[in-house]
Design a binder for these strands. Sequence first.
DNA 1: GCCAACGTTGGC
DNA 2: GCCAACGTTGGC
Length: 155
Amino acid sequence: MKKEIRYWLMKSEPTTYSIDHLKKEKKTSWEGVRNYQARNFMQEMRTSDLVLFYHSNTTEPGVMGIGKICKEAYPDHTQWDKKSDYYDPKATKENPRWFMPDVCFVKKFSTPVTLTTLKSSPFFKDMLVTQRGSRLSVQPVSKKHFDKIVSLGDR
DNA sequence: GCCAACGTTGGC
DNA sequence: GCCAACGTTGGC
């Protein structure tokens, strides 16, 4: 069976969870996503897929480094936790609504690839993240965009 | 802190 | 099933 690596972009607010947190922990469960489109993308993710780790809602939003999917989507336990911000009263154990993969650390860029950089080049103009009003926190990325961003960030 | 863009909710 | 009201995201 053919197995092709796919590429993704995942947003996180650095005050909540930054690339440095991931670097230190090596691995994290991507809990808290409460958007169906983002959830569906996470369910498509396969082990070894690569992820652009993006900082949102910060002074310089942009891609900070690379992660890798190290466990495929499974139910997000915070949906059942009444004390959690991510609690969803409509989710049941029999019928979980929300799923998350585990993401492992690969590398932190020496040079972050900022949203400004991405927006300034026509090469990236059809990326979802550069489109105005794109709030989607988990997005597919093409190989050409992934490779280019890595070449800009990792040097 | 503002606000545009977008997703979700709920009344009808 | 429509759509107005509301809540959230996230750049600036």
